[in-house]
Design a protein around this nucleic acid. Structure first.
Length: 790
RNA sequence: GCGCCCGUAGCUCAGUUUGGAUAGAGCGUCAGACUCCGGAUCUGAAGGUCGCGCGUUCGAAUCGCGCCGGGCGCACCA
């Protein structure tokens, strides 16, 4: 509603200006800093003063008086009819507008009508009540013509689920190396990505979520090395706490560990779904730093890494089971000296898959879900790079160096791009002299596929094969995603194009967001540049690196970790004096996502139980569900509220706070609002939405309640602004301001004990709007569940 | 060296992309809140050279230039 009024008002001002001799003025309406000044403001008279050679107030007054006429003669169903005809000129030349509060509130309350019902004007208002149509105006758009038309069709279709042909947005996020447990840095990535996805969907976009799995990189290779080559005592130390059966036996520790891995995989117990239980990714979290420490002590041990890496690139035949692989690795002698490459690749795949499943469960707890899991091994084996290499050569985008330090490499020259101007060495190696492709090379191929631009010579799409990876269910907008029981398929890629899955239609995004931390800016620019030099300028512009700063630890957090684990990370006094300490999976320095969540759940349980008072105790299941919701709310809000360009220095006390500027504060406002309606219903005072809307239409709304109404109405604007700038701190701040206003009003405007029925109807109407809006902001947009009670 | 980011209250941060009216929260500190829809709440107080300087502008935390301090990039790693 607000957005339509805004755009119509802007159009009206532009029309008046053109009568005054100013053609094509760009008119934008602001919200005044204080509500007493009005609901909307136009500051454009000030900059016009010079051009028109008249004082700004004179211009403002001319526009204001003419607008007054236009507004008072507007048709009743026109958006301008929601504006008070008295237009004020204040200060040096601000033009301030007020809304007709009663009618505006009534319009906001009424559920939006579907397209095709009702009159045209009414329909426009209704759709905008959802924040969709108006929201589009400030998003930097798809290039015109790509999007299937502004307004009508696309917005309305999206609300109804959308036709398959509307442009797709691909969002890639999470992308955790499948060699250890997820930590809080990955959490920031996943939450930012997930909130982006939710906001895009709110704006009516068709969105596909990809979680890229780097299953053939050195990180996975290092864990394979850990299982096969790490000195026995060290391997045992990492594995035995998780797999007691490895502690004893005749065979070597390596073989015992491999057998345990295979038998647990066969029994389906390799991955546990219990929060707090030591899982496979926790085992790897212990094992991986031991491997890197071993390399530091014994540099020649890195030869094992190279050997494994090479084996991973070769892959393994379809149908080769983990049991068979372990058999080959275990049989000949206690410690295999020359392992079978295929068996190594099969083992690596099992390790990567188990870690991936752990990550999916971790993210599922936080209501983060995906559509497809592209695997690096499939990019390799499906020949994505080979095809991209041909395209790059055809376009003369790369060249083979015959001398200098890059001799023998295929490089892409960046010297001609303005983006890379001033660089000492403006060449990026894509293919090494030993014939292997770099990560950036693979990423270019992957990005081409994401954009639907990886095509064979005959024009056919060069695509993956697909198979189902898991089934999952997510009962509500912000409810935990649970694997194993639902009817929605999570798909992974395969390297066999004959693996067809009905309805599988992935990649080919009109726009692609890559959620990756800011340290990857350089390679991301290279990828974008490659798309551009291949002749896809528009696609390059629609390849967006959603960059955010890293998560680090405060020195206090590091000390707490060391104390809790009885470890010494060996950081220098200089390091500990810095404002933050970088996490390092290699060194085992970090806060695991699940461990943090478990701590939060425990704290929340204590808090919930503590406020139960005397009455009958809360059922354990209720307690757990509430605590889980609160923990997730605290965590997601902490990740979303901070601007993306600022390093997030993680601190336990801050993370465990439930009061003030926190997720639970927001959740409490939503619970409180619902509670009002529960109580009203008990007393038979609930009223109806239509009744309240009708009652409110003719009534005077006081300033403080009106503030809450306007804030609710601005939600769509905030979503659009957040997406346009990729700053979700804006949305988090909006939610906080909104909840804060409600908490204040809650004390001053009792509903149940209102003085009279008219007062009650008004308060009920305003709080109804609040309740509906905060639920939507939290659950649908921020992914924060609202518990039934707290 | 080159590039990007950060610097706002004692602390942690919004606000900077589109310049606008009296720069906002939370934590912490101090003082308070009705037998009343839940105190994870609310009210009040104290707390600011928006890192520094110059410039543009009717108007600068916001734009430009130059400094200072801090972080991160600039691999035949991923």
């Amino acid at each position: 509603m607000l957005e339509n009024v805004r755009s119509e008002l802007a159009a009206a001002i532009a029309a008046e200006l053109s009568d005054l001799g100013v053609a094509d003025a760009a008119v934008s309406l602001d919200v005044p800093p204080r509500r007493q000044l009005g609901d909307l403001a136009w500051a454009g008279a000030l900059p016009l003063a010079k051009a028109l050679r008249r004082p700004p107030r004179v211009i403002a007054e001319a526009v204001a008086s003419r607008l007054g006429v236009r507004i008072s003669t507007a048709a009743p169903d026109h958006p301008l009819a929601f504006v008070e005809p008295e237009v004020a000129v204040e200060g040096p030349g601000f033009v301030n507008f007020r809304l007709r509060r009663g009618p505006a509130l009534a319009a906001l309350l009424r559920p939006p009508t579907r397209r095709g019902e009702g009159g045209r004007g009414h329909d426009r208002l209704a759709r905008d009540g959802e924040g969709v149509a108006g929201a589009e105006t400030s998003e930097p758009g798809f290039t015109p013509g790509e999007r299937g038309g502004r307004g009508g069709a696309s917005a309305a279709e999206a609300l109804g689920g959308g036709p398959q042909r509307s442009p797709k947005v691909v969002v890639e996020h999470t992308n955790i190396n499948p060699n250890k447990a997820a930590h809080i840095g990955h959490l920031r990535n996943a939450v930012l990505g997930d909130v982006l996805v939710r906001c895009l969907r709110r704006l009516g976009r068709r969105v596909e979520v990809q979680n890229y799995v780097d299953d053939t990189g050195v990180q996975v290779a290092d864990v394979v090395v850990g299982f096969l080559f790490l000195p026995e005592a060290r391997l045992l130390e990492a594995v035995a706490p998780f797999w007691p059966e490895v502690a004893e036996g005749e065979e070597s520790v390596q073989v015992r560990a491999l057998r345990a891995l295979a038998s647990r995989d066969g029994a389906g117990t390799l991955v546990a779904a219990e929060l707090g239980a030591g899982d496979f990714d926790d085992l790897c979290w212990e094992l991986y730093p031991r491997v890197t420490r071993w390399y530091d002590e014994l540099p020649e041990a890195t030869a094992h890494r190279a050997e494994v890496l090479h084996a991973l690139e070769g892959g393994f035949p379809a149908g080769f089971t983990l049991d068979a692989a372990v058999q080959r690795l275990a049989s000949p002698d206690p410690r295999p000296r020359t392992p079978d490459p295929e068996a190594l690749a099969r083992l690596a795949a099992a390790i990567a898959e188990a870690n991936l499943r752990c990550h999916l469960i971790t993210m599922g707890r936080l209501a983060v879900a995906y559509d497809v899991l592209p695997h690096e091994s499939d990019i390799l084996h499906r020949g994505f790079w080979a095809r991209a290499f041909e395209l790059l050569k055809e376009a003369d985008a790369i060249r083979l160096e015959s001398e200098g330090k890059n001799s023998g490499c295929w490089v892409m020259s960046l010297a001609e791009s303005a983006e890379f101007a001033g660089m000492a060495d403006a060449d990026k190696i894509l293919l090494r002299s030993n014939g292997t492709v770099t990560y950036t090379g693979k990423d270019i191929a992957y990005q081409l596929w994401k954009l639907g631009l990886l095509r064979d010579a005959d024009g056919a799409l060069h695509d993956f094969g697909y198979r189902e990876f898991a089934r999952f269910a997510a009962p509500g907008p912000a409810a935990a995603v649970t694997y194993g029981a639902g009817d929605r398929a999570l798909v992974r890629t395969t390297d066999d194009r004959d693996d067809r899955l009905p309805g599988a239609d992935f990649g080919g995004g009109e726009r692609v967001y890559n959620v990756i931390d800011v340290r990857q800016s350089y390679p991301q620019k290279v990828v974008k540049e490659a798309i551009r030099v291949l002749g896809h300028g528009d696609a390059a512009e629609n390849s967006i690196h959603f960059a955010y700063e890293m998560v680090a630890l405060t020195p206090a957090a590091v000390k707490r970790l060391e104390a809790a684990q009885g470890l010494d990370f060996g950081l220098s006094a200089e390091d500990m004096a810095k404002p933050f300490v970088e996490m390092s999976g290699r060194r085992g320095i970090g806060v695991k996502a699940d461990a943090l969540l478990a701590t939060l759940v425990a704290e929340a349980e204590r808090a919930v139980a503590g406020r139960q008072g005397e009455g009958p105790g809360l059922a354990a299941a209720d307690l757990a569900a509430r605590a889980r919701a609160i923990a997730v709310g605290a965590l997601r809000y902490q990740m979303a509220r901070q601007g993306r360009n600022r390093v997030l220095a993680f601190d336990f006390d801050e993370a465990l706070a439930f009061e003030g500027d926190t997720g639970p504060y927001l959740q409490y406002s939503a619970v409180r609002a619902r509670k009002i309606f529960d109580k009203l219903a008990d007393k038979g005072l609930a009223g109806t939405l239509e009744g309240d809307a009708a009652a409110v239409a003719e009534v005077a709304v006081p300033d403080d309640l009106w503030d809450l109404v306007v804030t609710a109405a601005r939600t769509g604007e905030m979503v659009a602004k957040a997406v346009a700038s990729l700053e979700f701190s804006l949305l988090a701040g909006h939610a906080r301001d909104f909840a804060q206003m409600f908490h204040k009003l809650y004390h001053e405007h009792p509903v149940l004990h209102a003085e009279d029925e008219a007062t009650r109807a008004l308060r009920r109407a305003v709080f109804r709007l609040f309740s509906r809006t905060i639920d939507e902001i939290l659950e649908s947009l921020l992914g924060i569940p609202v518990p039934s009670e707290m």
